[in-house]
Design a protein around this nucleic acid. Structure first.
Lengths: 138, 138
DNA sequence: ACCCTTTTGCAACTTTGTTGCAAAATTTAT
DNA sequence: ATAAATTTTGCAACAAAGTTGCAAAAGGGT
């Protein structure tokens, strides 16, 4: 079952506004990960920088998107799967960042392996980031 | 065989200066990861911000330290093991970030598992970041 | 249509990171 | 040990990224 953009917003008790619709559509259309700057450009600078920051924050809090760790200092976001809910993210797939085109892919098909930690470290979330050459840059 | 701080610098064709010595000693004393801000504070604001940025860059280029990916936007650095050399990092251990005290640990004993990617993705570097509760925050 | 609540945009500010250049420190050669 | 050559530092100025308070505008419920 696929939800429309306004439905996703309503389901999360968020008012349906032009900026939220547009940003959410961007994520759906893109598939991969986006950073603040991408969003600013792809919305045609129609929305204030601050609005975009606040929208992204809100989406993260509601479990609609999640941040992706990167080796450079950029902050990337991607859509969560349905299991994510307010205050709780469960994205146990691998992220791939292309060294050539910088695109970030959420490899949903590749799941994060078991990691055996020293016994006094209690894991909460495990993130795997693979960098290399993506399918489009061969 | 353990090298002294000046020896590490000389071995990498770097002049031995007060800031480089101090920053390298900080990493050795700390064991874990540090961010720019930590270093600025722990050196007693004795060195210019710019000098610290440039020193960190230089150390990364020389393979003395490496950056650690994080989900928030912070940039963390940690000492490389001996195998790292100029322009080439080989840190295939797992990084652990404590949700409570924010400390980053390089878990040298835990190595990064094999990851099977879709066949049109060619991996270069694999990073694993585990967040949770560390040994000191039980 | 109205009222109440939420969201937006602006302005101002903080933090983080970068660049050019002259002064100071380090290294090399004498 | 000293002087010349090279590297590194600190300053100033700037650029980019992110935050906060507040009034105006838009959204939701009646």
């Amino acid at each position: 079952m696929i939800l429309s953009v306004p439905d996703i917003l309503k389901r999360n008790q968020l008012s349906v506004t032009a900026s939220r619709k547009k940003i959410l559509e961007l994520f759906q259309a893109n598939g991969g990960a986006l950073e603040h700057n991408d969003i600013e450009k792809r919305t045609g600078e129609k929305f204030d920088r601050v609005t975009i920051y606040r929208t992204l924050q809100t989406f993260v809090e509601k479990g609609i998107i999640h941040t992706i760790p990167t080796a450079d200092n950029s902050v990337r976001y991607a859509l969560c799967k349905d299991e994510c809910s307010e205050g709780h993210h469960h994205d146990n797939h691998v992220h791939f960042v292309c060294d050539y085109c910088q695109t970030t892919f959420c490899l949903e098909a590749v799941s994060v392996p078991e990691i055996r930690l020293p016994k006094d470290f209690k894991p909460n979330l495990i993130e795997v980031i693979v960098t290399g050459k993506c399918k489009d840059c061969q």
